[in-house]
Amino acid sequence: MEVPILKQGPYLIASIQSALSDADLVELRDGLVEKVGRLRSKGVIVDVTALDVMDSFATRTLRDIAFMIRLRGAETVIVGIQPDVAFTMVQLGLTLEGVPTALDLEGGIAYLNKKSAASGREAKARGR
């Protein structure tokens, strides 16, 4: 099942619609890493609300996505981790350390807006 990647202004939104196989997750990773360059996106939101299982592979791939996107010069935020999924991840010791998360899409956009405003201020300060 392919994950649709939507362009929303300077951001990309990957909205997972159903259970994903390992191959689907890898395809999502490669698609995002490519698109963030081609569309010169500043941020990526991966919405996992529909995922009822986040096992070690899914968690590792999401972490890889966030780190690869950062190396490409953009920010990633994972949104919509469900309460039962969060409970299971913590039991497994999968904390997604170093990867920003937000409650939902709205929270994810707010995070990215804040982040790009902050980097804009920094650039301005350096310019003086």
Binding site: D52, V53, M54, D55, F57, P83, D84, T88
Partner: peptide
Amino acid sequence: SSSDLTLTATAISELAR
């Protein structure tokens, strides 16, 4: 319970992988 369903499904996923 819904949390036990998620724990069980995740365990199956790990074993199958």
